[in-house]
Amino acid sequence: MAYSDKVVDHYSNPRNVGTLDKSSSEVGTGLVGAPECGDVMRLQIKVNPQTQIIEEAKFKTFGCGSAIASSSLATEWVKGKTVAEAMAISNTDIVKELALPPVKIHCSVLAEDAIRAAIGDWKQKNGMAETEAAAQPVATTA
């Protein structure tokens, strides 16, 4: 199966690989996994407490090219967005951008879950009431 150019680009030149200080109250960490293929993905965000803008995003993914590309793209997209805007990113956007084939859609679901988990962790740290998505991530299927 051929990967799209964008997947290859993100895979061979991943953006924002790295780690943020997990203990900081401004940092939210999401760790998710895909049992189907044994992938693990960690996505971290650093949120400005005044503006609620995500100023920094880092990821580390152990998995296939599509999983790495999906999380790389996710960090690019969340940066500069507010937390509420980032919550609106859906896996279908990732599928479209990376032209993922049907067998790799779960990689994009994983990236969406990682964003939500990171935001959920940040909200929890900052005493914000858990509302919708983070507690119950529902995959929007393409």
């Binding site: 760790l31 996994g33 895909a34 049992p35 693990v40 152990f62 679901v109 994983l110």
Partner: peptide, 19 residues
């Protein structure tokens, strides 16, 4: 379809070991 059925402790272990 919902991923993340694996216990969180196992995920954390897997991640650390991969690092």
């Amino acid at each position: 379809e919902t991923p993340a059925q694996v216990p969180p402790e196992l995920l954390a272990e897997v991640f650390e070991l991969n690092m």
